[in-house]
Deep mutational scan, measured.
Amino acid sequence: MTFKLIINGKTLKGETTTEAVDAATAEKVFKQYFNDNGIDGEWTYDDATKTFTITE
């Protein structure tokens, strides 16, 4: 399955996707992406659209 990440950061904005077997696996991938890029904020997940959103 394809999961999308929408980034609404102070310095970084955009979208990316990842292929994962489930939302929990995608969450781990995206959290690592947050850490690697110094993004910290509030994030949500919409199961209907398989979209994670992080807002700094």
Rank of each mutant, 00 (worst) to 15 (best):
A24H: 10
L5V: 10
A23M: 11
D40M: 14
D40W: 14
T55K: 05
A26V: 02
M1R: 07
K13S: 13
G9V: 15
N8H: 10
D47P: 12
Q32A: 12
D46P: 00
L12D: 09
D36E: 12
K13T: 08
T16N: 06
T51D: 00
T55F: 09
T25S: 13
T16H: 15
T51K: 01
G9F: 15
T25E: 13
K4F: 10
A20T: 05
T16D: 04
T53N: 03
T16E: 07
V29S: 07
D22I: 02
I39S: 04
G9Q: 07
D40G: 08
N37L: 15
G9L: 15
T18F: 14
T49V: 05
D47L: 04
E15H: 06
G9E: 02
G9R: 06
D22T: 03
G14E: 13
I6C: 05
Y45G: 00
I7P: 00
K4A: 04
T11I: 14
Q32M: 09
A20N: 03
G14Q: 14
T25N: 08
Y33P: 02
I6P: 00
F52S: 00
E27C: 09
A24N: 08
K50V: 02
K13C: 14
N35P: 04
A23N: 03
F3I: 02
E42I: 13
N37I: 15
K50R: 13
E56M: 09
G38D: 10
D46Q: 03
V29I: 13
T51W: 01
T44G: 06
V29R: 08
K31I: 12
N8E: 07
K10M: 13
K10N: 13
T49H: 04
D40T: 14
T16M: 15
T51R: 01
G38Q: 11
I39P: 05
I7T: 03
E27N: 04
D22K: 01
D36T: 09
T11D: 12
K50E: 01
L5E: 01
T11V: 12
K4N: 04
F3E: 01
K13V: 11
F3R: 00
K50I: 03
T49E: 05
L12C: 15
I6G: 00
N8L: 13
K4R: 12
T18H: 05
K50M: 11
K28C: 07
N8M: 12
I6H: 06
D22C: 03
T2V: 13
K28Q: 12
G14I: 15
K13D: 05
N8I: 14
G38I: 13
T55P: 01
E42K: 07
Y33K: 07
Q32C: 06
G41N: 06
K10I: 15
I6D: 02
K28E: 09
F3S: 01
A24W: 12
M1P: 08
E27Q: 07
N35M: 13
Y45Q: 00
A48Y: 09
K28F: 08
T51G: 00
N35D: 13
T17A: 08
Y33S: 04
N37P: 06
E27Y: 15
W43E: 00
Y33F: 11
Y33M: 13
I54G: 02
T17V: 08
T18D: 01
E27D: 03
I54T: 03
T49Q: 05
A48P: 07
E15C: 12
A20W: 02
G14C: 15
T11G: 08
V21Y: 07
L5R: 00
